[in-house]
Simulated assay, not measured.
Amino acid sequence: MKKILILFLYLFCCYADDDYECKNNDLNACYKVIKSSPSPIDFCQNVEEFNYKKTCAEYFYDITRVAHQYQAKELRDKLYMDFPKVCIDFIYAQRHLSNTIIEESLSMACEIDYIKACDLLVEQKMVDNVKYVEKSCNAGNYNACVELEYIKLKNNNLALAETECLQNNNCEKAFNEGTKNQEILLKLCENKNEKACLRYAELNASKNNGKYDEYSLKACEINVNVCMQKAKSLEQFLQFDFEGNIKTLKRYYEIACEKGLDIACEEFKRVEALNPDDYKFDGKVKTIRIKF
C-alpha cells in the first residue's frame, strides 16, 4: 500500500510539474500531460487552455491516426479556426476518406486563408470554386492562375449544359462537364447511370442522411463491379462499426450474387459467418486484403 501511495505521489508531482511547464509555454511538457491521459483525443476535445489546444493541433496526426474518423473530425472542427493545419493533418491521419470529405476539409482551411490548403485543392483538381483557386493564384501559384482561366470557361460551359439538361432532359453533357447539381445527378441515376449514382452518393457522404449507402447500392444494382469494389472497401471498416456496416456489406454481395456473379455468392457466405468479436477495435488499424 505504501509503495502504491509513493508511486501515486510521484506521478502526481510529475504531472503537476509538466502542467506548470506547459502553462509557461513548454509544448513538450504539454504533450507529456496529454500522452499520459487515459485518452489523449478526449483530453484534447475537452481542454480549453490555449497551450494545450496548440499542442493538440501540433501533434494532431499522432493523436488521431488510430482514432475513429468521427472523433478525429470532431477534434478537427474544434481546432481548425485557430490552427487550420489540422485540416490537412486530418486527411493524412485518416484512411479511406471519400473525396467529398477530403475536399470539405481542405475547403474549410482555404476558406480562412490557409493557402497551403488552397494549393492542395488546385493540385489535386478537387475544386471548381473560383474563390479558392483565386486565393491560390493571388498567392503566386502559377498553376492556379492557369486553372482559374480554365474554370471560368468550364463554368460557362457547365451552366449551358445544366440549362439544357433541366429544360430538355439532355443531361449527359452536364455530367461530363462535372456537374454537382443533385437534381441532374438523380435524373441520370434513375436512367441507370451508375457513375451519377456514385457521384450523388459522394456528395452526401458527410451528411449522415442515409443517401450515401442508398445510392451506392443503386449503383451496385446497375453494375455488379461496383458491388465488389464497394464491398472490398467497406470491409476495412468492420472494426469500427461491425453492426452498422455488416448489413450493407452483405447487401452488396447479395445483389451481385442475384445478378449471377458466382464469386459474390461465395463472398456472401463468407461474410455471413464473420464473428463480430474478431473486429473489435483495439487501437490498431487492421488491413484486410481480399483476393478475387
Rank of each mutant, 00 (worst) to 15 (best):
E164Q: 10
M126V: 03
A161G: 00
L166I: 08
L121S: 06
K125R: 12
E147A: 15
G140S: 08
T179Y: 05
V133S: 04
K131P: 06
K154M: 10
I151F: 06
K152H: 02
E164V: 11
K152F: 01
V133Q: 02
K173N: 14
S136V: 05
V133C: 00
V133R: 04
K180E: 11
A159E: 07
N169F: 14
N176D: 15
E164A: 12
A161V: 02
C171G: 06
Q124M: 15
L120I: 10
L160G: 03
E149M: 09
N156Y: 07
N176V: 07
A174K: 03
C171N: 03
E162C: 00
I151M: 05
L160Q: 07
S136G: 08
G178I: 11
E134K: 15
C171T: 04
N138I: 13
Y132N: 09
N141Q: 14
L121G: 10
K125F: 06
V122M: 03
D128V: 09
G178Y: 07
L186S: 10
A174Q: 02
V130F: 07
N155R: 03
A144V: 07
C145E: 02
V146D: 15
L158W: 00
I184A: 04
T163D: 11
G178V: 08
N138L: 15
N181H: 03
A139D: 15
G178E: 10
L153Y: 08
L166K: 14
N155V: 00
A144N: 01
N156Q: 11
K131V: 11
K152R: 11
V127Y: 06
I184K: 00
D128M: 12
I151H: 02
L148K: 06
L186T: 09
N170K: 15
C165Q: 01
Y150M: 04
C165L: 01
A139Q: 12
K180F: 12
C165I: 00
N156R: 08
K131E: 11
E164P: 05
F175W: 08
L121A: 02
E172M: 13
K125P: 03
N176K: 14
N155A: 00
L121K: 04
L185F: 02
N156L: 06
L148S: 01
Q124Y: 12
Y150K: 09
G140F: 02
D119R: 13
N169G: 08
K135F: 05
D128I: 11
E162Q: 00
